[in-house]
């Protein structure tokens, strides 16, 4: 039995009267690679924020293994980050060093600088190091955020729709990076829309529609739920939730 890195225990969350999550439970073992899938408004981002510790659940508990304190890498949706911030690419990637470097010591040379150089090369941004962040394309910006995660070196990686609105060419190397992290034994939880990618790369799935609609091995789960990638994700929505979502759309 592998050790649990994240345990959800009847987690609930609501925004005002809108119930985002209801009694969600589940276990994410150390080293697991899990896709969190579900329709819009299913509470996927909320769940990730709660696991990251950015938000506290209104009910229930999230237990993150104590060894992971400060070892959580959280990548918010790209739209949640200020793209126009006056940092260049190297500085933005270097912010991943912060937990190790602290507030004052320099990271302009030595092993810390080497970590940044390597991460920039890993995502193919080495020629963009001096560019201002605001000048990057959407795909390049996503690569920058992946480079920051590489620098940060976290054991639990939480990705919120990392491939939203970027082209297939950029997706491939980022998927490769996720596979590298998986091979290194890190725990990865990734919110994702693309069922094709989920079936191909993610061994575990967590289906969410306000409540947990199913979890386990991706293939078994999808066959059992009679889901294929051409089936509308809305099928996951519990009947009583459908009306709410219709209102939002």
């Amino acid at each position: 039995m592998t050790q649990a890195h994240v345990t959800l225990d009847d987690v609930s969350y609501h925004y005002g009267h809108h119930k985002a999550l209801q009694d969600v439970s589940g276990v994410f073992p150390a080293g697991s690679l899990t896709a969190v899938a579900g329709p819009n408004g299913a509470g996927k981002s909320t769940l990730l924020k709660i696991i990251a510790g950015v938000m506290k659940p209104k009910k229930g508990r999230v237990i993150v293994a104590p060894a992971l304190k400060g070892k959580i890498g959280y990548l918010p949706q790209a739209s949640a980050i200020e793209r126009d911030y006056p940092l260049n690419v190297r500085d933005a990637v270097s912010t991943g060093l912060w937990p190790d470097a602290g507030s004052l010591p320099s990271f302009q040379e030595g092993p810390l600088k080497a970590r940044v150089d390597k991460a920039l090369a890993d995502v193919g941004l080495q020629d963009f190091a001096a560019r201002q962040m605001g000048e990057l394309s959407g795909g390049q910006f996503q690569r920058l955020l992946f480079a920051r995660l590489i620098v940060q070196d976290p054991q639990l990686i939480l990705l919120d729709e990392p491939f939203a609105a970027i082209d297939a060419q950029t997706i491939a190397p980022l998927i490769q990076q996720i596979m590298v992290w998986h091979a290194q034994g890190r725990t990865i939880i990734c919110v994702l829309h693309d069922l094709l990618l989920i079936r191909k790369y993610f061994p575990e799935s967590f289906l969410l529609a306000g409540k947990c609609m199913g979890r386990g091995h991706t293939h078994a789960l999808f066959d059992q739920k009679l889901l294929s990638f051409d089936l509308d994700m809305a099928e996951l929505v519990a009947p009583e939730k459908k009306e709410d979502l219709g209102g939002n759309a």
């Binding site: 510790g53 959580i72 991943g96 940060q152």
Partner: peptide, 21 residues
Amino acid sequence: YRRFVIDGFDGAFMRTAGAQR
């Protein structure tokens, strides 16, 4: 300074990555 700049850029990152600080 470094903390203020990182916090303004991505506060969620600041709190999750630096939880032990």
